[in-house]
Design a binder for these strands. Structure first.
Lengths: 332, 332
DNA sequence: CTGTTTTAGATTAACGTTAATCCATAAAAA
DNA sequence: TTTTTATGGATTAACGTTAATCTAAAACAG
């Protein structure tokens, strides 16, 4: 069958334990012995069995990542940050997408627990029926939320200020004289939607203006939603001179719809996205948006998680990454 | 510490083995006993230890997925197909990206072996220095390539006919009178680039026309490459009336560059992509492209892999998914 | 030269599960 | 009645590693 430590032990005459320690670089094994053992290992084509190691050491060196939406490159970037950082710390990633389903998220977390992950990074969804904060709260392993939060667990988060980010967008538009701003909000079960909506409201309040509720439309955040919602708004004769979107994917769909309806951007309608996807600068017109440091968000989350895995007495504390407005061709 | 089978055994009075069998639904345990045990398990908050199970049964119910480029939604779709199918068969996925680096790919495969995956699905890269076909050829576990191949291992593949697909695009353009077609090829180390280039050449040959080599430019396949290459081609005064791209991401960059240079699509230049990303229909103008059934590609790969895992005598045989041309606004 | 520490490695016992075997008891067949 | 065959479960031994403990020899201090 396959080669194990004992085969190396037999070949070299050392004990299994010595072989194990040597291959792990334990300082209690002399350099000479280590060299002999390493050579024997590679000669035999030894492949370490990480499962057995995990079992005995009760550390799997694996972390579970609960991502939200596989269709949105935003998450790909965050995950790349997680992955890169994980590699740096010697961790492996078990990844799965919830596609924004809270039930699926709960199943995933349970599956991760079965797999004995050392920690979890999640982009969580909340659902009134499933007590999600509780699901995480009961976890006996470290966990970090990246870019989203659940009430009561903010100290487990790496966040960016969505209220502030979205408010500055809308204030900017209001100050330029826009009064009818169509707002494409995100899915109702994620914290970002809530916060960005709050940002919009704050902006209107700060300028002592009223925000009409029929100017707010919720969507899942996919490109086709932006397209369909804009078409629909135009069809029902809604007047607007600017559109702010929950994310860049929505904004791309918006651009398509506006163009098909012979409205030019930004002269007829100004459009703002959110996230600053890499591809957004290549859209036609290029998208004005709010930059979120996606890669860094993932990297910081992983970094923080590892810190908690390696020191379980470390107190949790919210960390932040900063956003900034980016003005491109979709606004004046 | 944490609850194990023995705790349930203690509580119910049955043996550890009986508990194990009951929870796995073994038919040799009576329904009554199974019910008692299941209830006890959930009362105790039992979480099965998949690591221990893997270790003993030497089946991890995990498959390794080697994806290529995290920035391209093409792969996200394929992976979604893999994931969905994996879930159906009760498998978990260990996912990592090579970002088209053959070295990283080799490292990943080795890591997967350490983790005792039951099989591997890869989108492989080849490299003259690393004998990649050998790396896979020596594998003692089942493996499938999705959408790409390595020479000598085509029977491990689920493929689509790239030669045919790209040829039909170019033949179409040649038949419409285009003579100067700029070809944005893909990265040199992937089979698709090779095949699609062959398709282009076949098209020219079949129409008894010459393809000038300076009309072929290689790129990594990212959106910024399409943008930069088109700019560069225009700057050096290259004449062309059509552009065929290795993939849709490149084509998006192309569209941006052409627009900035006041060339209109399709009247001045016709543009073809490849892959039919979901978002391509929302580009401005929407992209003509070659549809590749990405989700299905992943699902079939997973399905095939599972068949091989469950029957190791099953002979490998190439499987195919079909592509088709899609005409949208970027062509006439 | 004795007693103590250090070094390098060996021994033993898990980790939590599943596979392989074995053993009752009861029902069915002879 | 005796023998077979299910049925339902118990016992025992791994799986390949690592942690905890122990031992012999060498090095060192007093």
């Amino acid at each position: 069958m396959s080669i194990g430590l004992k085969d190396i032990a037999q070949k070299t005459g050392f004990s299994v334990n010595t072989v194990s320690r040597a291959l792990r670089g334990d300082s209690r094994i002399s350099a000479g012995t280590t060299a002999i053992i390493s050579r024997a290992a590679s000669e035999l084509g030894y492949i370490p069995n990480a499962i057995a190691a995990s079992m005995r050491s009760s550390r799997s060196k694996t972390i579970g990542v609960v991502s939200a939406d596989s269709a949105n490159p935003f998450f790909s970037e965050v995950i790349r940050g997680i992955e890169e950082s994980a590699r740096h710390f010697g961790y492996q990633i078990l990844l799965a997408n919830t596609e924004e389903s809270a039930k699926r998220e709960a199943d995933l977390v349970r599956m991760f627990l079965c797999r004995q992950v050392d920690g979890i990074i999640a982009m969580p969804t909340y659902d009134k029926d499933l007590d999600h904060a509780d699901l995480y709260g009961r976890l006996s392993i470290p966990f970090i939320f990246a870019g989203r939060y659940l009430d009561g667990l903010k100290d487990h988060c790496v966040l960016h200020d969505d209220v502030e980010g979205q408010r500055s967008v809308v204030e900017h538009l209001l100050d330029k004289g826009h009064r009818n701003i169509l707002c494409l909000a995100g899915p109702k079960k994620v914290s970002n939607t809530h916060d960005r909506l709050a940002g919009i409201r704050e902006a209107f309040e700060s300028r002592h203006l009223a925000l009409e509720e029929n100017y707010i439309v919720h969507a899942m955040g996919h490109i086709e939603d932006g397209y369909a919602i804009t078409n629909h708004a135009l069809n029902r004769g809604l007047e607007f001179s600017a559109i702010v979107c929950f994310n860049d994917m929505l904004a791309m769909g918006v651009l398509k719809s506006l163009h098909e309806n012979n409205l030019s951007v930004p002269s007829d309608v100004e459009v703002f996205g959110y996230d600053n996807l890499y591809m957004s600068q290549f859209m036609q017109p290029s998208l004005s948006t709010v930059d979120v440091p996606k890669f860094r968000l993932g990297a910081v989350a992983m970094e923080t998680l590892v810190a908690h895995i390696e020191d379980d007495s470390l107190p949790y504390a919210q960390r932040n990454v900063s956003t900034r407005l980016i003005f491109r061709e979709s606004t004046r």
